[in-house]
Nucleic acid binder design. Sequence first.
DNA 1: CGGGATCCATTCCGATACTG
DNA 2: CAGTATCGGAATGGATCCCG
Lengths: 138, 138
Amino acid sequence: MGTSTVVNLRSMDPPLRDVDLSNLDFGNCPVRDLISQIGGKWSVLLLETLAKRSYRFGELRRLVPDISQRMLTQTLRDLQRDGYVDREVFPTKPPSVEYRMTELGRSLYVPLAQLLNWAEANHEAVRAARIRFDQLPD
Amino acid sequence: MGTSTVVNLRSMDPPLRDVDLSNLDFGNCPVRDLISQIGGKWSVLLLETLAKRSYRFGELRRLVPDISQRMLTQTLRDLQRDGYVDREVFPTKPPSVEYRMTELGRSLYVPLAQLLNWAEANHEAVRAARIRFDQLPD
DNA sequence: CGGGATCCATTCCGATACTG
DNA sequence: CAGTATCGGAATGGATCCCG
């Protein structure tokens, strides 16, 4: 559900895809839209990294060794598309590309970091809750 | 989501110097685990709803009309499993079930609401960034 | 009423190979 | 170095029918 038509040009995989369920007053999609974007497997990790300083593509690869190059490219492009990250190309002999957070990205990172802190502080409680739940008699 | 993470690197890669991950708790999946959980399509919507007050299953269905009964059941169970929501069954003639937030859920909702406020306040900026990005040459 | 069980479409993501 | 292109499996989510 989008506030407006969602032309979801999702980076590499599909040529083009438009998914649009009409507005429903409740869903207030922009919020969900944003949340589900950073809910992806790598977005938060990259935002955390780029919150520290700028990095080049290869540096990010080494910092997050278990990300595939495909997902690194795609996630960075999605973050750039949403305006959280800027991409600057330096026309050196082997080209080098640097990624840095934008002001919008930094402003997002304020409440996001709060949530991440909560997660870090409470993940034990969540794990315990899961174990409790899973051990209930059917 | 969430297979194993960077931790593997440490045990497999002796020769090179360890990248210092301690500041940016990379190997710390619990954070990603939690974020990807609430990043699901309906979790945030249900947490927002249940933050107001308790509801019965059918009430939630009517409040979020475009959720399928399957996803409502499943999302509620996941939220319950993680300890954010409690489920109480009343053995009435047609059974009735009530869902309410736990204290853990309410404590999660504090930073989460901050993030949601940010999303609401800034989704126009994000939409604009997307349009700008999508209209770039190439 | 509050689910469970199936089936099916879509989407996400990893592995691999190739390129300017 | 910083990406593309392509394939295939895994996960996610919707529709439908059934049940105490």
